[in-house]
């Protein structure tokens, strides 16, 4: 993060309210305190977030005293930049890419720090820590700068930007262990709670106003928690009794299904779903 702050003039940090970006904030505190962060936080708000996430985000930003910029997918829809998907499987997940790229351009950001990890998904295993994006925000996995030692090359041409992933080499378990070590507060939905859910394609989803149920689907109450936090429309819950960090870590250590495979409908569409979205400029 310091290396990026030194190499680029206008970085920002993408803050989703999820655990990985919450860890990023702690790392930023370690890198820059007692000074302020040399970058603002940016939240791409789909309008379909869990209310708990938004509430947590605002609390978090207030206690840090840092600047938050909200980039709204609803605003992109209203301006006709993107078209809302329709039907029972509609999601704003894919629309975020345009909102994000527009926000980077509007604020003239030349780098965005994100919380993605290489262990999350196969297409991410080859992502660089300083990852170069062309003027269309696109990633070319075959033409990446080699990353040698800890010598990061942050040089860019006008209009290009960097995505920087400080947690590249962390695993899901590393993140949880760090949260425990540092006693970092998280949104409640990471811990087991009773919630109205429905089942679709073998996954549990939170009942929410943005999804129309199919005729065969029914709402019931279960004890669940979330392993990742995305949109209510595409983030699945897992049945869990883990109410404390210790419980969660024990559960993660024993888990036999990857985080994204278990809970992200967005990655399941095609075998190379993530790779396609990343090429377009997704997180």
């Amino acid at each position: 993060m310091r290396e990026l702050a030194a190499e680029r003039e206008r970085p920002c940090l993408l803050f989703s309210g999820g655990k990985d970006s919450i860890v990023l904030l702690r790392l930023a505190e370690k890198a820059f305190r007692p000074a302020r962060f040399p970058f603002p936080l940016v939240h791409v708000d789909t309008g379909h977030n869990f209310p708990e996430t938004i509430e947590f985000r605002d609390r978090c930003v207030a206690s840090l005293g840092e600047r938050l910029i909200i980039a709204s997918v609803q605003a992109s829809i209203d301006r006709g930049r993107v078209t809302e998907e329709t039907g029972p499987r509609a999601s704003r997940n894919r629309l975020q890419t345009t909102t994000l790229l527009d926000a980077l351009e509007a604020h003239e950001f030349d780098a965005a720090i994100g919380g993605a990890r290489r262990d999350e998904e196969r297409a991410r295993a080859k992502e660089r820590i300083f990852s170069h994006r062309d003027e269309f925000g696109q990633w070319d996995p075959k033409n990446q700068r080699p990353e040698l030692w800890a010598l990061y090359n942050g040089r860019l041409k006008r209009g290009e930007h960097l995505r920087v992933f400080p947690l590249s080499n962390w695993t899901e378990l590393d993140v949880w262990e760090y949260i425990q070590l540092e006693q970092i507060p998280l949104p409640d939905i990471y811990f087991a709670h009773r919630r109205e859910v429905f089942e679709r394609d073998g996954m549990l989803y939170a009942a929410n106003p943005f999804v129309k149920l199919l005729p065969s689907e029914q709402i019931r109450v279960e004890q669940v928690r979330f392993r990742t936090i995305g949109d209510m429309t595409c983030t699945g819950a897992i049945r869990s009794a883990a109410t404390t960090l210790d419980d969660v870590i024990a559960e993660v250590a024993a888990a036999r299904i990857t985080e994204r495979g278990a809970t992200r409908a967005d990655d399941r569409f095609t075998e190379a779903a993530m790779e396609d979205r990343k090429r377009e400029g997704y997180f």
Partner: peptide, 10 residues
């Protein structure tokens, strides 16, 4: 395989 890929285990 055409590039460097990173894997993790413990």
């Amino acid at each position: 395989t055409i590039d460097v890929a990173y894997r993790y285990f413990a």
